[in-house]
Design a binder for these strands. Structure first.
Lengths: 197, 197
DNA sequence: GTCTATATTGCGATAGAC
DNA sequence: GTCTATCGCAATATAGAC
């Protein structure tokens, strides 16, 4: 009945895996920081891998908002903007999720079919459809390649967060999330907008 | 005198580290694939970490071209386009370098001050200056934030490669590097271009 | 230079007392 | 549920023969 230990282990695992990645974190590290015994991880989760998966899935719930059924009813521009806003919000409220996704980028083979990948797939489809509709209704350029445009948007929004750690080491310029996203989306929308002749 | 073993170990190390990352590759894996004894790694490089650093630095030489002194003399547009072209070329000719850089994005703390980071810093400065000059000479929008614009460009160009492994699992759309880069840079340049009133 | 053999460490996992 | 103790394994690194 005392599941406090399980919860603590999970939240510590999320914290440490997000920061250092799967390989660099031992179950002993997690147990120590959670003030629990390392054998409790086997007891509650079965294995280190299962604990990681549990951590990943718990974080994945945060992509829910963007994927709500009402999203598809929005205009193409609104959907693309919502994607950017949602990622910005997720990062503010829960930076660890982005860390997990980044780790997945790096070692995709580690966890073949996770919940998070299914979510990402849905996100990609939503964006692609929005771009396609935007072209059809005349608001975006006709010569846009849908796949490429989707990657450009994803790159603009995600690279900022993916590269943050490295950037702060290289450059002395301080980040301003609000400012970046506004500037970036202006460039993006100006770049895909249909020109008046 | 017979340094063939050393060279083989290094090239195998580059291959394996790029593919699986530092943690997932053991010195035994490297030695086996190089048909050498694992103790040869200590003999030639001292440690696994030193071998990794050697692999990283050897790869970093490939960023040279973009950083040649003649680059700074080009027009802002040309410099930004050259950045995209160079990364595309690097990836085609030497995909392992990009893998290394991707690993550095994920675990930047692992190797505090590497050669590669100095190169990246120089690249960032070149791009920033190009954007700044483009604003001054009236070819780019005046309201551009230099830092944000530089990250947008870097994101557009790099995210495509960073995300490739994961994307191919999620989406069935085949990549076409040439097509992507052309589309992406058109969006980018249209997005930062100064509008005629 | 290259090999075998081994020292040493740290890992994930589990058995079993309480 | 939680602990101690330990097993079994794989890793890096090294000592020493050749």
């Amino acid at each position: 009945m005392k599941q406090a230990t399980k919860e603590t282990l999970l939240s510590v695992a999320i914290e440490l895996f997000a920061e250092y990645g799967y390989d660099k974190v031992s179950i002993r590290d997690i147990a120590e920081k959670a003030k629990a015994n390392s054998s409790m991880i086997s007891y509650y989760f079965g294995s280190k891998q299962n604990l990681y998966d549990a951590a990943l899935e718990k974080q994945a719930g945060n992509l829910q908002e963007f994927l709500s059924p009402s999203t598809v009813a929005l205009s193409p521009q609104k959907i693309l903007q919502l994607y950017a806003d949602t990622l910005q919000e997720i990062h503010e409220k829960n930076p660890t999720l982005m860390k997990f996704i980044c780790w997945e980028f790096k070692t995709p083979s580690a966890h073949p079919e996770t919940f998070i990948k299914q979510r990402l797939k849905r996100v990609y489809e939503l964006i692609s459809q929005a771009i396609s509709r935007g072209i059809d209704d005349g608001s975006f350029r006709e010569d846009l390649d849908i796949h490429s445009t989707a990657i450009v948007l994803a790159g603009i929004v995600n690279f900022y967060y993916i590269s943050r750690d490295l950037r702060t080491r290289i450059s002395s310029v301080a980040d301003n999330d609000e400012c970046y996203m506004k500037q970036a989306m202006k460039i993006f929308f100006d770049g895909i907008k249909r020109r008046q002749l």
